[in-house]
Amino acid sequence: MFRTKQGRRRGPALALLAAASLVLALGGCSVDTVTPGQARGEAGSDGGGAATDGRAASPGRAAAPVDCAKAKCIALTFDAGPGKDTPHLLDVLKEKQVPATFFLLGSKHVERYPQVVKRIADEGHEVANHTWSHRILTDLDADEVRDELSRTQEAIAKITGRKPTLMRPPQGRTDGTVSDVSRELGLSQVLWSITAKDYSTEDTALIRRRVLEQAHGDGIILLHDIYDGTVPAVPGIIDELKRRGYTFVTVPQLLAPGKAEPGVVYRPEKEDD
């Protein structure tokens, strides 16, 4: 079984976190995963973690404190953009004061829409890496994985001035090689627990219903801002989840006061609300 390792010395709290982590079988290899609650618990047991990482930065406004150990938090994430509908999505998020995490593709997306990438960052959303060309990383050797991730790192940094610290492997497929390269590049891996499978339908009502049926505290929602039915579903998803008492946060805010560790795989465990 593959277990996440750090090149530097890990403290006792991190060892406890790893011991408590879930095991996820992906890419033909068992990879330990860590839940948001475990990340927060590890930070608490280590006596560290300031509230700054848990400040929910609503787009266009100053950050407000949020404690996801107490609040019913949920993270809205978008893969494989930006695309033609991303500016409208950003308008929706700004209007509803909801932060999100965008896992961006390099080829034909970041390179095609640099001003949209800049806007995502400027409006307080988390900018993350979804590889350069969406190749399945578990099918590649270490050099190819490195190329897929590092090219997108550099392209985003050129636009925003900052390299991402989070990445999402295409199809959620990861293994020891992917984790080792991610650690080398300073990237944590983020999976999900709620998906509308919006790549398979343009039915906005169905996308909305699938998300709402699966929603849970500490959840991470996976959507794609490149499909026609997805962005129109977002306002209804936000409104209903707010009505149910959810607080929207970015992935780093969901983990706070813990911080995402490079190479580690983060994945929520669904719980009944």
Rank of each mutant, 00 (worst) to 15 (best):
D143C: 04
R119T: 13
T201M: 14
R10L: 06
T174A: 13
T33I: 12
L105V: 15
L17D: 05
A100M: 02
H224I: 04
V190G: 04
Y227E: 05
H109Y: 09
R267C: 09
L149T: 04
T131F: 10
R208L: 06
Q38L: 11
T174S: 13
V92Y: 00
C29V: 10
V23H: 15
R40G: 02
T77S: 02
L223A: 08
C73E: 01
G28F: 15
E240M: 06
W192S: 07
D46A: 14
T35N: 14
V66P: 00
K118T: 07
Q6R: 10
R151F: 03
R10H: 02
S133N: 06
R209K: 14
T230D: 04
L140R: 03
G172M: 05
A205S: 11
G186S: 07
W132V: 00
D180A: 12
V145C: 06
T35G: 07
D147M: 06
P65Y: 04
P114E: 07
H109E: 09
S188L: 03
V92W: 00
L90N: 04
K5C: 11
S150E: 12
G7Y: 13
L222I: 15
V211K: 06
P252V: 04
A157D: 07
T204I: 09
R168G: 09
V211L: 04
R244K: 14
R162T: 15
